[in-house]
Design a binder for these strands. Structure first.
Lengths: 372, 372
DNA sequence: TCATGTTCCGTAAACGTTTACGTAAATAAA
DNA sequence: TTTATTTACGTAAACGTTTACGGAACATGA
């Protein structure tokens, strides 16, 4: 029941506590013979140093905090995987906190962490977070932080993100290329960095194709599943929509449900593309065209940056930020239906666009795209 | 940069450190006026108590450890969700560790935790773990532990599991009822509690239906995705298989891939049922019949039990174990194909079985099932 | 011989809290 | 008044490490 500590080892070996400590830490001023004796007994008694005493004395917790909106989301699961791996390789421990997309919770968690519980923080901001005042404490206390995926633009620290603007642009352009002209955009809170960038890509792609941007085709969701489905159904009933671009995984899934409920066929009636990290996107009915983020790498990279700051004791700056590339994986949910004359006609237009993106490999004879 | 501590507060207020500490902890022997003064300054200076000093002194870390095989698995994600919620409600912190299904890692993680880093442990054992020697340290140190989902049977501590035997039985019987007679069983390591129970349910269901158990129809997988797919394809080529019962989610997905690769139709050629916690099982092609575990509740319940042990300081016993019920959700991947004469004939047999399970609601005129 | 250096270990303070114990002042009881 | 009790706070030890400092023992060089 009682745990073995340095004092016990010291008594047993007729040594001082200090000597035992130094022996275990392999200090130069302890003889090899003593080190061997100490280690042998430590192993025999299953000695484990008390982490809290050690942290208190060394002013170093060997722990990092990971703050994410939710874990039941493949992106964050994969990211945690990468983070945990890097942490363990550095003999660090990982505290996980969920904000449930709530600013208040995010703030109170950060406040806890700023109390010295962790040596560094990895954060992906909640969708309802509107300002970054709660992060000042971390800076004041000198606790390094790295954002991943969802960031605050005006915070001077490293961020690991993906090419969200490009991804939004490419996703939208892909829908345009397969004939969509009335494209709904499903997004999270517009206060979110990723939402803004993806939406800007969407808007610019529309503009470049000469399709007017219609604000009423932008739907904000992501909180409640059934609520999201309802809202999408309503949008699909009100407007003649032939394409959906979902900014997060769950909204793509809700789109499937909504289309199913309304008897709309994918991709014949509505084409769907969504951000998603599900490996089983290809097993859906129909297989979902996705923007897939390198979630695991994002986690690893963010953790790597954080550990550089922690171990080198060098302040982390904006300059260390990284932007990784997402991948557009085209599947049946946005495929052209040969059987449909209209779609075919559209295809004729679409494949004529210049093909400087890889996903345009199917394009044959480039020519300018005209408005529809 | 420098953090504010009790000493600083005490100096500022002309009080002793002890008084400040007691004021903040709302002790009875401090005047209300002093408490107010102390709290005001603490708030003003954003004082946060040093958790490591506190843990060291109180011999209580306010932290629990969660050890799971992986996080990129919907079951564990949901469980963590439940765990984190309960932990936060109790003002506890959650350390997450991944074993990657590796016994060595599990052992070294547990050894770390036994060093006093946590007040309690929630563990779901790795598939390659063969003995529980590494868990002795937790018992010796008096650190309570609760197993969830994957347990060691011969360890005298609380476990939160699901009705794996029943689930295996019901899944298999369902396949039998829709006409399958050559049912493959895809499983993880047989050393795993859940695997053994689900398999026993499978075996007993076969026996009760008069279908001989064929060991060569049992396939062990779960490590590597492409490897799993290959193995399943091989099995499907070698044997005439009309049903697949996957003991874990990933193996059901691999079965879909394998069938797809071989041009086998689900459910016409092969019917598939799998354990899974994906909400989007209904969006697969075809929608997957699942055994769905109450993952979130399992996490919550396990955490609840653990906190009872921690707060009440009462040793946790086998008697506190809980078994929750999984749900069989029938979807198209196991549906009878009316268009197929053979299937229809089978159906005639199958629906005659006694209907004491809810999922048998469709049964009309009960009669004994004969071997096929 | 003494001075100097090296090797190896002990003493004690420190990290920031919590808490057992003591005590002065104020109040109540006698 | 004296004595007992309560109130409100301070003193100091403790939690288990780490580490600055010092010093004994021994070896080395002159």
């Amino acid at each position: 029941m009682k745990s073995v500590n340095l004092k016990k080892l010291a008594e047993e070996l007729n040594l001082s506590v200090a000597t035992v400590s130094r022996a275990l830490n392999d200090r130069y001023d302890i003889s090899q013979a003593t080190k061997d004796r100490v280690r042998e007994l430590a192993n025999k008694l299953n000695y484990e140093p008390n982490p809290y005493a050690s942290s208190l004395r060394r002013q170093r917790s060997k722990t990092i905090g990971v703050v994410i909106p939710e874990v039941a989301n493949h992106f964050f699961s994969l990211a945690i995987n990468g983070i945990e791996e890097v942490a363990r390789n550095n003999n660090y421990h990982v505290l996980v906190y969920l904000t449930h997309e709530d600013y208040q919770q995010e703030a109170s968690i950060v406040r806890l962490l700023a109390g010295g519980r962790v040596d560094g923080v990895l954060l992906s901001v909640a969708s309802t977070s509107h300002d970054l005042g709660h992060l000042d404490m971390l800076r004041e206390r000198g606790i390094p932080m790295v954002f991943f995926d969802r960031v605050y633009d005006d915070m001077a620290t490293a961020k690991v993100t993906t090419d969200d603007y490009d991804s939004g642009y490419r996703a939208t352009r892909h829908l345009l290329e397969v004939g969509c002209r009335s494209i709904a955009h499903l997004t999270l809170s517009p206060s979110l960095s990723i939402s803004r960038r993806r939406m800007q890509g969407y808007i610019d792609a529309l503009r470049d194709a000469g399709v007017p941007f219609d604000e009423s085709l932008v739907l904000q969701g992501g909180t409640n599943r059934t609520q999201d489905i309802d809202a999408i159904e309503q949008l699909l009933r009100q407007r003649r929509i032939d394409g959906i671009f979902a900014s997060i995984e769950s909204l793509a899934m809700c789109s499937y449900e909504a289309c199913h409920n309304l008897g709309l066929r994918i991709p014949q009636d509505v084409k769907v593309i969504g951000f998603s990290n599900l490996e089983i996107a290809s097993l859906l009915d129909p297989p979902l065209t996705t923007i897939t983020q390198p979630a695991y790498s994002i986690g690893k990279e963010a953790a790597r940056l954080l550990f550089q700051a922690i171990t080198k004791n060098r302040p982390i700056s904006l300059g260390h930020s990284q932007e990784l590339k997402s991948e557009l994986v085209i599947r049946a949910s946005t495929s052209l239906e040969q059987s449909q004359a209209r779609a075919a006609a559209l295809a004729a237009y679409c494949v004529r666009r210049p093909a400087h993106y890889t996903e345009n490999a199917l394009a044959s004879d480039p020519a300018p795209l005209q408005g529809f």
